[in-house]
Simulated assay, not measured.
Amino acid sequence: MAQTILKVQGMTCGHCKASVEGALLELAGVSKAEVNLEEGTVDVSYDETDVSIEAMHEAVEEQGYDIA
């Protein structure tokens, strides 16, 4: 299991948190996605054989947020 922290711009509320976490958790291989709104980060645990960082970036960007 690998872990990364994504820096996400534009998250301001509970809906933002739910959107980003939900999009990441839908990806095969992602086991945990926890948003910290104050820091603008998402702590992600994932299986690197199933999902790439690029796929996570795309999932977040499809929700309307930018990766810093």
Score class of each variant (00 low, 15 high):
M1Y: 07
M1V: 07
M1P: 07
A2P: 00
A2V: 02
Q3C: 08
Q3E: 13
Q3W: 03
T4Q: 09
T4W: 01
T4L: 14
I5P: 04
V8R: 04
V8T: 13
V8Y: 10
Q9F: 11
M11G: 05
T12P: 02
T12R: 12
T12C: 08
C13N: 13
G14D: 11
G14R: 07
H15D: 12
K17G: 00
A18G: 15
A18Y: 11
A18T: 13
A18H: 12
S19R: 11
S19A: 15
S19G: 00
S19Q: 15
V20P: 02
E21N: 10
E21Q: 13
E21K: 00
A23T: 12
E26K: 15
L27C: 08
L27T: 05
L27H: 06
A28C: 01
G29I: 04
G29S: 09
V30I: 10
S31A: 06
S31D: 13
S31H: 02
S31T: 15
K32F: 07
K32Q: 15
A33C: 10
E34P: 03
V35K: 11
N36M: 10
E38W: 04
G40D: 06
G40E: 10
G40Q: 09
V42T: 08
V42P: 05
V42Q: 07
D43Q: 12
D43E: 15
S45K: 12
S45E: 14
Y46N: 09
Y46I: 00
D47H: 03
D47I: 04
D47R: 03
E48C: 00
T49Y: 01
D50H: 01
D50L: 14
D50T: 03
V51F: 05
S52K: 08
I53W: 07
I53D: 03
E54V: 01
E54C: 05
E54M: 06
A55E: 15
A55Y: 02
M56F: 03
M56T: 04
M56R: 08
E58L: 08
E58T: 14
A59Q: 00
A59C: 04
V60T: 08
E61V: 04
Q63H: 01
Q63W: 07
Q63N: 10
Y65V: 10
Y65F: 15
D66R: 02
D66C: 00
I67H: 04
A68W: 05
